[in-house]
């Protein structure tokens, strides 16, 4: 589904990604871990198409097509979703209206008509119940005055509504208490299927206790320096990142 080949990216001439190679197939869950500043969030933003980053080398293929030159919305229309580490507040636009617009714009790009209102309402009801989101919450301005946990739950709500092929969760676990973490994780597990894939970017093991990864990658200084199964995450949790640093420098 996603194939990243020797990806280099920089921001304001500072190289952040220095040759990433990664292949993700439908039905897989990948975790990307690594210390602060290793380039994890940059990788997520570059896949989603943030224009602040310049891809200087390499390619990103999504379903065998390069998406490097595509606008963020075009990538979204193809089925790429990024759950933000810090979701932006948008005063004046309610969660429901935002969702309607996002869904109908995506349908438009796929040459489909607007989703009928009753279908939309039913879907909103189902998905908000799944994430234990209060109905009142849906008429509030998007992310404005939301607590950290509410913002993250709202991100996963949007993920559930948009049903992307590839979901990238950028530090979705940060700022969540244990109850919220469980709700979010169970939401992701319900969405997960053999047809879609998930990338979880995190510092810690704890989210991975709930969403079990098939592969774990460790990023360090803009590269993936180690890959393994779910036990690698446990090893990192136990030993920290110093031994990775030593291995790389050796």
């Amino acid at each position: 589904m996603l194939k990243i080949i020797d990806l280099h990216a920089s921001v304001e001439d500072k190289a952040i990604l220095k040759g990433i190679n990664l292949e993700i197939n439908a039905g897989e869950v990948h975790a990307i871990m690594g210390p602060n500043g290793s380039g994890k969030s940059t990788l997520a933003s570059v896949i989603a198409g943030k224009e602040d980053y310049e891809v200087t080398q390499g390619d990103i293929l999504f379903e065998d097509e390069s998406i490097n030159e595509l606008a963020p919305e075009e990538r979204a229309h193809k089925g790429v979703f990024l759950s933000f580490q810090y979701p932006t507040e948008i005063p004046g636009v309610s969660v429901t209206n935002f969702m309607k617009t996002a869904i109908n714009e995506t349908r438009k790009a796929r040459k489909l008509g607007d989703m009928p209102a009753n279908e939309m309402l039913k879907m909103i009801r189902e998905k908000s119940e799944m994430l234990e989101i209060d109905r009142k919450f849906l008429s509030r301005s998007l992310n404005e005055g939301f607590s950290g946990g509410e913002k993250k739950r709202n991100e996963i709500f949007q993920l559930a509504m948009l049903e992307p092929k590839l979901a990238i969760l950028d530090e979705t676990d940060s700022g969540l208490d244990i109850d919220a973490l469980r709700i979010v994780a169970s939401g992701v597990n319900k969405i997960k299927s053999k047809d879609n894939a998930v990338i979880i970017i995190t510092h810690y093991q704890r989210l991975l206790d709930y969403i079990i990864p098939d592969f774990v990658h460790v990023m360090f200084e803009g590269r993936i320096v180690k890959s393994g199964g779910k036990e690698l995450a446990l090893e990192l949790e136990e030993k920290g990142y110093d031994w990775i640093r030593e291995e790389v420098n050796a």
């Binding site: 963020p72 919305e73 979204a76 229309h77 979703f81 932006t88 948008i90 935002f98």
Partner: peptide, 14 residues
């Protein structure tokens, strides 16, 4: 905010 909305499939102009 622009990037956030576009990443959810809302085109730049919209």
């Amino acid at each position: 905010a622009m990037f956030y909305m576009r990443s959810r499939g809302i085109p730049e102009k919209e």
